[in-house]
Structures are given as structure tokens and as C-alpha cells.
Amino acid sequence: MRHLDSIAVFVEVARTGSFTAAARTLQMPLSSVSRKVAELEAELQIRLLDRSRKPLRMTEAGQAYFDLSSKGIDALTYANQAMRGKQETLSGTLRITVPPNLTELLFVKPIDRFVRRHPDARVRVLVSERMLDFVDDAIDLSFRVARPAAPNLVIRKLLVHRHRLCAAPSYLAVHALPREPAELSEHVRLGFGFQSQDSIAWQLTRGETSYSEPFEPTVAINDYLALKAAIEQGTGIGELPGLLCKDDLASGRLVEILPDWRLPEISLYAVYAGKVGLSKLARGFLDEVAAHTASF
């Protein structure tokens, strides 16, 4: 594991999207961060980062390598944190924001492990679609499904998943299974939408072919758990986050519609203020979440 430190440096550069931000987070000279990534690229004989573009981006090979290596780095970080936790108990109040619909699936277990390991810690969770201000709203750590564009933020990608079109077997028992995206117009369609939104569009791709046609859903709900319940009872076809429906698809409770056509991928990011940095309390909790999401 001669290049383990270089892998860890690359993972941090990829997560923050910047050599400078990674150097600050790792408390390393900028030149050392750049050199270690270059050494890793030379060892692998592939280009991991496209340095010619602003902001910094991963190459296709770099994205694939990051997806594989980041899980190992997260596991090692969690192992170190778990061992330190045997000697160090954290205390204080941690304030976090999390996106709706994914709270139970992605955060309840890490919160449980965290407060069991650190009984003097207190966690305050605000479920919000909106990106809150770290200073004005007194937020320590934010988890978002849309990458923030604000400067001076450290952004760490935790998870990538995609949405799926689903229907219940009871619905398909009386409606023909669509074979092509155009046939969706013949079905009852349920959508994730808001009051000001009259129409939505499912962005479907298969290889280099894409399909997107705006439609007005029969039922629109701005809550994926409620939308999932409507789909399960056979109301119609709807779009769900893969994380919410994977067990139902595996058990046959739901059926994936047009499985060869893919909806866009969605990422989960951990975000915190770069100038302030993370407290030990917040970093310990982030390690718990990272270890949990690595299992998906």
C-alpha cells in the first residue's frame, strides 16, 4: 500500500474540487498535494484530473477510480475514528441539515451510532430542501442533493444513485407494460412536483438516445415517501429515488418500468464552511455518515 497516502490525497482533491481546498483540509502544502496526485497518476498510468478546466474536474477514468477508492478511504477513516472513540468521547451540540425523504434511510442509523458512542453529544437535525446559511442559521454541517455553487465551501461527495420509474404489480395487472418511453403517455403518471409546477419531464436515456417529453401528472406530490405509497397502492407509474425503492424492486413489491432507459444520477454531498472548518464533533459525525453511505 505504498501509495495509500497519495490515494487519500486524490480522494480529497476530487471531493473538494480544488487542490487548494484539499491542501487546507489535509493541512498539507499545496505543492505536496499536487505532487502526490501526479505520482499516483504516474503509477496508474492514467490521467485522473483534467487540470485545464475551471473548476477542476475528474476525467472519466478519474471518476471511476474515485468511486472505487473513496469507499476504501472512508472505511479506513471510520476504522480510525472508531478506535479513537474508545479513548475519546466527544461532547457538545451538533446542528445539521439533511434533505427530505432520505433522512430515515441515510441518517437515522449514523445518528444512533454517534450518540451511543458519544453520550455527551447532542444532535439537532433540520430537514430542509433549502441550503441554509452556516453562520446566520448556526449550522455545522449540511447534507445536500444539489452541489452548492457558493464560494468558500468544502464539498464532499458521499453517494451517487439514480431515480427509477416504478409501478405496482396491481397496476400492471390491468395496464399493459410500456415497452418504449412514448407509451408512457397512455398511462396514469404520478410526479414529484410543486404547486407552481404544471408539468414535469422524465429525462430518459439509453446509450446515446434520449427521450424527454413534458407532461401534466395525474397526481403530483412534493414528498417522495407519499409518492411511493401512491405507487405501491397501484395508482400509476412514478419516479422514485433508487435508494427508496431498491428493496421493493428486489422483493417484487414494485416493478421497474423501462429498465433499459436510465434517469439522471443524483449525488449526495456533505457541505461545510471552508473558512471555519469542521469541529471534532462534526467530523466524527461525518465519518459515521460516510461509513454508512459507503454500504449502498
Rank of each mutant, 00 (worst) to 15 (best):
E129C: 07
D137M: 06
V289G: 06
S267N: 11
I139W: 05
A138R: 15
E12G: 06
E39K: 12
P264A: 02
L49T: 04
V127L: 01
A294D: 07
V9P: 12
L244G: 06
R47G: 11
S52V: 01
A229E: 12
E12Q: 14
V13P: 12
F134P: 05
R15E: 15
V145H: 08
V37A: 06
L240H: 00
S52M: 04
D287A: 15
K275N: 15
V108K: 12
A229C: 01
I221M: 10
R84Y: 11
F215E: 07
A173N: 10
V160M: 10
D112R: 13
K157M: 11
L106K: 03
S6V: 00
D247L: 02
S212F: 03
A64R: 14
V135T: 13
A270G: 09
A201C: 10
V188A: 10
P169T: 01
S142L: 08
E288I: 06
P259H: 01
K86I: 11
V127H: 03
L26T: 06
L286E: 05
R47T: 15
E129A: 14
P119C: 03
D248M: 05
G234N: 03
A82L: 13
A220T: 07
F285D: 07
S199L: 07
R147N: 08
L249H: 05
S210G: 13
